[in-house]
């Protein structure tokens, strides 16, 4: 995690955010959330920039960024699969879904496929317990999953993305 090797991010993209929040006490999390919306993740140079703008030490900003699961320090794939690990999902077999996706995509929880298509992330309860097991992909919720159903959904998404790429 050496800052020097990272590619440079366009810091101007968050200047509005910093103008609005940098001097408001207690806004660090909000700034990080908005910065992540902009970049898709939190690049190291962005963390430095935020630290400087808010008058915090980089260590503190990194400390906050690594405390909360929402923040990512690595880029994610085109599709972010958020697989719910809530109790209801557990009771209804979410581990089997995780295993099936993991095997199918060849990635472990937290990893991204080599082609950059999918990132697999098991998350805390999504609150859709009645539809368990549940996963959310880019904001869309898919419920009452079975291993087969989950893999079909991923297959469809991949086909969709490939079609888009061709077009």
């Amino acid at each position: 995690m050496c800052g020097c090797k990272e590619k440079k991010s366009d810091l101007s993209l968050i200047s509005d955010i910093l103008d609005e929040y940098a001097k408001v006490p207690g806004s660090l999390i909000t700034i990080l959330q908005k910065a992540q919306e902009v970049y898709g993740y939190l690049p190291v140079d962005v963390i430095y920039h935020i630290a400087e703008a808010t008058g915090n030490s980089p260590a503190k900003v990194l400390g906050v960024a690594t405390f909360y699961t929402q923040f990512r320090l690595q880029p994610v794939g085109k599709y972010l699969i958020m697989l719910c690990q809530g109790t209801a999902c557990h009771v209804n077999g979410s581990e089997r879904i995780l295993a099936a996706i993991s095997e199918n995509l060849g990635i472990k929880n937290g990893e991204t496929t080599e082609d950059g298509m999918f990132t697999l992330s098991s998350v805390a309860c999504l609150g859709c317990c009645s539809l368990s097991p549940v996963m959310m992909i880019n904001g869309e919720t898919y419920g009452t999953l079975t291993p087969d159903k989950a893999l079909t959904i991923l297959k469809e998404l991949r086909e969709k993305a490939e079609k888009e790429a061709q077009a």
């Binding site: 806004s27 699961t69 929402q70 923040f71």
Partner: peptide
């Protein structure tokens, strides 16, 4: 908006989070 930490349901942790801390 929280940022994903169950412990923030605890009052004092929630306050720390509101203040932009871990």
């Amino acid at each position: 908006a929280g940022a994903g930490a169950f412990v923030c349901g605890e009052e004092t942790a929630l306050i720390a989070s509101l203040e932009g801390e871990r």
